[in-house]
Computed example of a mutant assay.
Amino acid sequence: MKKTTLKDIATHFGVSISTVSKAINDSHEISSELKLKIQDFAQEVHYRPNHIALSLLKKSTKTIGVIVPNILNYFFTQVFYGIEQKANSRGYGIISCISDESLQKERQTVDLLSSGTVDGIIMSLSEETQAKKDLTHLQDLIENQIPMVMFDRVTDQLDCDKIVVDDFEAGYKTTKYLVETGCKKIAVISSISNSSVGKLRVAGYQKALKEANITFEDRLLVKVGKKDDLQVLIALLIANNDVDGIIALDEITAVDTLNILKLKGVQVPDEIAVVGFTNGRLSKYVSPSLTMVSQHGKYIGELAADILIDRIEHDGLMPFTTKTVKTTLITRESTKNIP
């Protein structure tokens, strides 16, 4: 069935295409009688506007592209939700993409979104992008004046709006809290060791250890790759029976760590306390419930959408801004109380 066009409607009424367009868009320039007739007819023939053509005409798609490294991380799910809520309230849709921690996939996604599909992009860098420091695809975005807001995993090498979580302070505060509850051998389990946020959290952890006169040990920093068996790594970690605290740098790893410790008969928190990052639903309902670091993902998403849309609608005349979001430690049953 042939799709009805503005030209078809214009021919039917013996008027110009411009008149039909104005009538459908409820312009005051067209008489109410003719406007109603055209609108009724357009509905009758199931006319649908060509959004691609309209976006080319207006040089606007009213759409935002969002690229995250890992959708299984509840933090990024929260950010997605915040972006969508804020964007929708301001009349924008979103296209959601996942880089899966891959530089190549991130590059392909950026190329797709920057080809006129969206008005701007909100993104967090993949781990591989940060490890290889290859930012040519993002430099092209900036040179082509496509607005971009980076969040969480950002780089100082690009001039754009940024929202960062104070990950150094988060690692520091979390470690300090465990020390204050009596922990003396605190391990970190990281599945994001090559990312900026992973490195900052470890740096904060090391600072807190130093302040407490606790020697940092390499064996207590456990880096988990995609092909590694977490159960084996934890078995090796606790083999000496001296580890009394574990910080997992993402929620799924924290939940898995808790379950593995329970399977091995370890009493949490009496023998080993556990803290995770990202305060998602899983952490509330496991037993014992997990102490977690909340990064306020929904708020970050709302803030990112607001900053990007403001820049889109003000033609990029605003100075670039970097916002820092503080974390909150939410204490539950997986850690002891401070004496």
Rank of each mutant, 00 (worst) to 15 (best):
S283V: 09
Y47T: 01
F41C: 10
V232L: 12
I192R: 14
S32D: 12
I83R: 08
H296D: 04
T117Q: 07
E271T: 14
T4N: 11
K326W: 00
I94S: 02
K3W: 05
V154C: 07
K105E: 13
K62I: 08
Y81V: 06
T335W: 14
R48K: 10
N144A: 04
D156Y: 09
A170K: 07
K262P: 01
Y285L: 08
D8V: 06
T11K: 13
I189E: 09
K207Y: 04
S27M: 05
K284W: 09
T278Q: 09
T215M: 09
V274W: 03
L200F: 12
I260N: 14
Q267V: 07
T63G: 05
V118G: 12
V268H: 06
K7N: 09
K284G: 02
M123C: 12
L329F: 15
L303P: 07
A254R: 13
K326A: 15
I52R: 03
G120A: 02
H296I: 03
G297K: 04
D306G: 11
T174V: 13
S32C: 06
A53I: 09
E302W: 09
K210H: 07
I9Y: 04
I17H: 05
D161R: 00
S89G: 00
L308R: 02
S191Q: 10
N213I: 03
D8Q: 11
I307M: 15
Y92M: 07
N144I: 03
I146Y: 09
A87S: 15
N337A: 06
I260C: 07
K323I: 11
M1P: 01
G82T: 10
F80D: 11
A212I: 02
I234D: 04
I234E: 07
R201W: 08
S191V: 09
V79Y: 06
V325T: 07
D270N: 06
E333T: 00
L6G: 12
D229Y: 00
L249P: 01
I309F: 12
L125W: 10
F168E: 14
V110M: 07
E217F: 04
G82L: 06
Q139E: 13
P339R: 12
Y177L: 12
Q43A: 15
E44N: 06
H12F: 08
Q295G: 00
L6R: 05
L6Q: 08
L233C: 06
E29G: 00
K176Y: 03
K323H: 08
F216D: 12
L57I: 02
Q295V: 05
R219N: 08
L263R: 04
I142L: 15
I30V: 15
G182I: 05
H314I: 01
K86V: 01
G245I: 07
G301N: 12
T19Q: 09
G120Y: 04
Q157W: 01
V268N: 11
R153C: 06
L233Y: 05
D152P: 00
L178I: 02
E33N: 13
I307G: 10
S196R: 14
I9S: 10
L220E: 11
D159E: 07
S283G: 13
R201V: 04
V149H: 00
D111S: 14
Y81T: 13
S32M: 03
S115L: 02
T321V: 11
I122M: 01
L6P: 04
T291Y: 15
Q78Y: 00
Q130I: 05
L200K: 15
H28A: 13
F320A: 03
D306C: 02
T174M: 05
V188I: 15
N73D: 14
L209N: 06
R332S: 02
